[in-house]
Design a protein around this nucleic acid. Structure first.
Length: 413
RNA sequence: GGAGGGGUGGGUGAGCGGUUAAAGCCACCAGACUGUAAAUCUGGCCUCCGGAAGGAGUUCGCAGGUUCGAAUCCUGCCCCCUCCA
């Protein structure tokens, strides 16, 4: 028998809504293993923290003995993005789909238990779908039903295009639920419509209706929009430790508690304390953020990496010292008289073009650090003449290179 | 089948013969401030040459044309959208 406390934790924290909540809770109480459906689009194989909110729920339910069915949407991936922006994305080859699926799963199983996961490819059932099947499927729904969906109705009213295939997308996704006989489907709140179509279709086809488990949308590091790769405000699961830690430190204070809530097991009571402490300014939000960044880095890497990332952050960002490790660039002043500073920056990858490099130089963004303690801003193109191996160049806040002997540059070698 | 609207720099979106490398906004980069928070201020934001002043080259769906001069006009082509049927 599952305790009410556990049920509450699973169904309340980090959950936007469950349709129908009472039924779902009853299923948990009964304890019979449930089939938890989670689909993914193999044209987007990257998992970021926004996705992790849901993956953690899957994990929690696995701990209670339930089974995850991961659906590789190799078929729906071909009909484009239902959000409409890029309908003409190129179809993926089978090889690409396979590669993306592998990459996705590598990330997926950082959170979800592989042992209690069954992977199904959509093509298993859609591969042999005939036109007759498609027509039978489409005949069950009406246009106005689909126009009820927020996204569609808005675009329809604004005379924005809606491709027919986009209408097909929810149907195919719904059929997935029938094919695997899911008990619960997981998705973000923006997926609600699709999940509900699945629920309905199951009923029409004589199956019990799946429950819809809706995850909240995680706000991205910009503090405004939902976390998404295309908006560049995301923290990827495979982010290197320093970047993961750093990105989390750049979160607006207002998101700290919700990140703890959605992405960690920090007890609710502590969350409340944290919120109060920040409210009353008895604690520095930065300390909570460090804890958050450290915990998450430890989860996706390991505790040692998290410690190192914190040390790196404190050193490079807070104290503005040099990082312990940085890319190296072979350099010798001798024989390189024609190498201006801007060219050097471009060759070393610190600037994307000569013009860009010059702008940076003019803006005082280029700093020299030297062992002896000398150094300072480099303001002229001719500065390269004085550079020597061992020198470190910094551009902006976080781009560094260390000069090393070029090995074959000196004539007196 | 018919009518109309449109394709401009990462995104929006002005421009509608010269003063336009192309307004404004967003995003982004750098500097100041700082807790790589928020807010704010400043500068920048096609490429190449130049220390700079400045110069050159490529850009406004594609290809031609008119013109001293075209993102802006003309012709053809490609693509997108809306409405009516």
């Amino acid at each position: 028998m599952v305790s009410q406390a556990v049920i509450d934790h699973v169904t309340r924290r980090g959950v936007a809504d469950i349709i129908i909540r009472s039924e779902f809770e009853e299923m948990l109480r009964r304890g019979k293993p449930l089939r938890l459906k989670m689909g993914f689009d193999p044209s987007r194989p990257d998992i970021h923290l926004g996705h992790v909110v849901g993956l953690r729920k899957l994990r929690q339910l696995q701990e209670l003995g339930h089974q995850v069915i991961l659906i590789v949407g190799d078929w729906t991936a071909q009909i484009g993005d239902p959000s409409g922006r890029s309908v003409t994305r190129p179809m993926l080859t089978h090889e690409e789909v396979v590669a993306n699926a592998e990459s996705y799963m590598r990330q997926f199983f950082k959170v979800v238990d592989r042992e209690r996961t069954q992977v199904e490819w959509q093509s298993q059932w859609f591969g042999e779908f005939t036109l007759a099947d498609v027509i039978r499927l489409t005949s069950r729904f009406t246009v106005s039903q689909f126009l009820a969906r927020d996204d569609f109705s808005k675009r329809f009213q604004e005379h924005q295009p809606i491709a027919i295939t986009e209408l097909l997308y929810p149907l195919l996704q719904a059929y997935d639920s029938v094919a695997i006989e899911s008990d619960v489907e997981f998705g973000g709140t923006d997926q609600m419509f699709n999940l509900l179509v699945g629920r309905e279709l199951q009923g029409m086809m004589g199956q019990p209706n799946q429950q819809c488990f809706l995850m909240p949308i995680l706000v991205g590091t910009d503090g405004v929009q939902k976390m998404s790769k295309s908006l560049g405000n995301y923290v990827a699961v495979e982010e290197p430790p320093n970047d993961m830690y750093g990105k989390l430190m750049s979160l607006p204070d207002s998101l700290i508690v919700s990140y703890f809530e959605y992405l960690t097991d920090t007890p609710d009571a502590e969350l409340t304390e944290m919120a109060e402490a920040m409210q009353t300014e008895t604690a520095n939000p930065m300390d909570f953020k460090k804890r958050l960044a450290g915990e998450l880095t430890a989860v996706f890497h390991d505790p040692a990496a998290a410690r190192d990332a914190q040390a790196h952050f404190e050193r490079v960002v807070q104290r503005r010292s040099l990082p312990e490790e940085m890319p190296e660039f072979a350099w010798d002043a001798a024989g390189n008289e024609a190498m201006t500073l801007s060219r050097l920056l471009v060759s070393a990858g610190l600037a994307s073009s000569n013009a860009e490099a010059k702008r940076l130089i003019n803006q005082g963004a280029v700093q020299l650090f030297r062992e002896s303690g000398q150094g300072g801003p480099l303001t002229g193109e001719g500065a390269t003449a004085d550079l020597m191996p061992g020198d470190v160049l910094r551009v902006g806040r976080r781009r560094f290179i260390r000069l090393i002997p070029s090995g074959n540059g000196g004539a007196d070698f």
